[in-house]
């Protein structure tokens, strides 16, 4: 991403839209993660701003990226309310997931026990850490180069088979790399040193 942008200050919390120059500048192309009340998500999900016009809801309890949209994330309702109000999605949603625990380890048919372990920022990306049936998984989210799509990649221990149940996306163009489709919509990746399983999500209108 070539465009430099600053983070939105918290009292103007329409994130991804109001790119204000303020004293607390951050580096360019840096994602921002906000744990909050998100619509259509489990408790304490994440609003993730990946770029000036790209945001998503990450719901660890359901099992991953719930929605991706072109636009911004408005935290104003949450920050003002005494009785909780979810954040607002401002923009056009082009990707949605609804399947509970679409990621599986070693058995494509068994929903795993998922435990959240945290996240970290790294080189214009945010990396979520969790375990599936005790197997440590790292999932990296970053904006695609042109800023209108996103890349999602998983790292799993060597020899562990990771399965992903993809859903039909009428408004998104979705491609996979590093895995094989073993059944319609079911992808498999086996952990191997230096290799990861990648998913690229772009809005159809802009792909």
């Amino acid at each position: 991403m070539s465009r430099a942008w600053t983070h939105a200050v918290p009292w103007l919390p329409i994130l991804g839209m109001q790119w204000l120059t303020c004293l607390c500048m951050t580096n360019a192309a840096e994602p921002q993660v906000f744990r909050t009340f998100m619509p259509e998500a489990g408790p304490s999900a994440f609003g993730v701003v990946l770029g000036p016009d790209l945001a998503l809801c990450y719901d660890d309890l359901r099992g991953g990226v719930n929605q991706v949209w072109l636009g911004s994330l408005d935290l104003t309702p949450t920050f003002q309310a005494k009785i909780n109000q979810p954040a607002t999605i401002k923009g056009t949603v082009f990707y949605k997931e609804g399947k509970v625990q679409p990621l599986r380890v070693n058995d494509a048919t068994k929903a795993p026990e998922r435990r959240f372990k945290g996240y970290r920022y790294d080189k214009n990306a945010v990396i979520f850490h969790y375990t599936l049936d005790g197997v440590a998984i790292r999932e990296t989210l970053r904006a695609s180069d042109e800023g209108h799509g996103m890349m999602r990649s998983w790292s799993v221990p060597e020899g562990v088979a990771l399965f992903f149940h993809a859903e039909t996306q009428p408004d998104a163009h979705v491609t996979f790399d590093g895995g094989e489709e073993i059944a319609p919509g079911v992808w498999r990746h086996v952990g191997q040193s230096g290799k990861s399983f990648m998913m690229v999500i772009k809005p159809r209108s802009k792909s």
């Binding site: 309310a81 005494k82 009785i83 909780n84 945290g118 996240y119 790294d122």
Partner: peptide, 23 residues
């Protein structure tokens, strides 16, 4: 972890209790 004065690692130490988003 990189000494720039900002947290870059948000580690879950424990979350073994119920949450329901209730205010």
């Amino acid at each position: 972890t990189n000494g720039d004065g900002r947290a870059d690692h948000y580690e879950t130490v424990n979350d073994d209790w119920c949450v329901t988003d209730n205010w």
